[in-house]
Design a protein around this nucleic acid. Structure first.
Length: 295
DNA sequence: TTGTGTTTTATTGCCTCC
DNA sequence: GGAGGCAATAAAACACAA
């Protein structure tokens, strides 16, 4: 347990501050004291090395800084909390950006879907015309072989069905993310909005998302017109997992991952018609898949 | 100067682990 | 049961616009 919990005490800074300390102790014995920049600097450096504090390290740091061991422990506690908050914010922004890109893909797919449905109707009509008495053939229909027209119609129908299913799943995800966005903006909400949103995506089915172990370096998802064809996509490389806070400041958390090492998650968007979002660091430029990954 | 929002330091209560 | 971690919160310190 934290030593002295519940007992209010005056705070001590460096030995050099003791004169001033006496003044505060006389006048305002329970005033909070900010740590000096030098103290904060050393604490930050120590936090960079390891964000958990073993008893020996705590004692040593307290001795070096002229602080109570409890103050060092509290500083680390608060520092971990700040790091976590920033990490979550960053992850959320990243996920949101990816979501926006996926939404753009989705919109393009919807348009494609619409176009293909129209094509199916047109081809079907042409097929029917061709089966009708001779005088009714149009010039455009003459150009089409019956087998070719049938194959195109079949493929178009399959694509249309696939897109419709994807659109349905997408709507679910969109709603989930919208809710999480609101939760994120309301203070005091517990849990991880980012992870919850990720879970929502993973639960949406329809071949758009998958969970793999980090040891697996490829992943298959249903694709193609018949739904029984699998595209394989090679995972990674994933740059450093989730980066931690403060590359805007001391950069003290480089390489810290807030997620379990062995958990890897990615979202994949099956591509059939060349609509593909371009995200700086998560794009597979083969027109097949986009993904995000934590490991 | 003052009101207000943000950051930092510290406490409290609960939980998990050994 | 004690030690330590975390979430929630209080309150002082600080920043800054009006």
């Amino acid at each position: 347990m934290e030593e002295g919990r519940g007992v209010k005490r005056p705070f001590f800074t460096s030995p050099d501050d003791m004169l001033e300390e006496e003044y505060y102790d006389e006048q305002l014995p329970e005033k909070k004291r900010r740590l000096t920049p030098e103290q904060v600097h050393l604490l930050e450096r120590s936090f960079e090395e390891e964000n958990k504090l073993e008893p020996e390290r705590k004692t040593e740091l307290a001795r070096k800084l002229g602080l109570q061991p409890r103050q060092v422990a509290v500083w680390f506690q608060n520092r971990r909390a700040r790091w976590k908050t920033k990490t979550l914010e960053r992850d959320f922004d990243r996920l949101k950006a990816s979501f926006d890109a996926l939404r753009a893909d989705h919109d393009a797919l919807l348009q494609d879907n619409h176009r293909l449905r129209s094509q199916v109707v047109t081809l079907t009509e042409k097929m029917q015309d061709k089966e009708a008495p001779e005088g009714s053939f149009g010039a455009a229909v003459d150009a089409l072989e019956p087998e070719q027209a049938a194959a195109e119609a079949k493929a178009s129908l399959a694509n249309a069905e696939e897109h419709a299913a994807a659109a349905e799943a997408f709507e679910v995800v969109q709603q989930q993310l919208h809710v999480k966005d609101e939760e994120r903006l309301s203070p005091g909400s517990g849990g991880s909005a980012v992870l919850d949103a990720r879970d929502a995506l993973l639960g949406s089915g329809c071949g758009l998302a998958g969970v793999v172990d980090s040891s697996v370096d490829s992943y298959c998802f249903p694709g193609g017109a018949g739904g029984d064809e699998y595209h394989e996509c090679v995972m990674g490389p994933v740059a450093g997992g989730i980066q931690s806070e403060e590359d805007d400041g001391a950069g003290s958390d480089e390489g810290c991952s807030y997620y379990p090492d062995d958990a890897a998650v990615f979202f994949a968007a099956a591509q059939g018609h060349g609509h593909h979002h371009t995200d700086d660091d998560d794009q597979q430029d083969d027109g097949q898949i986009s993904y995000w990954m934590w490991n």
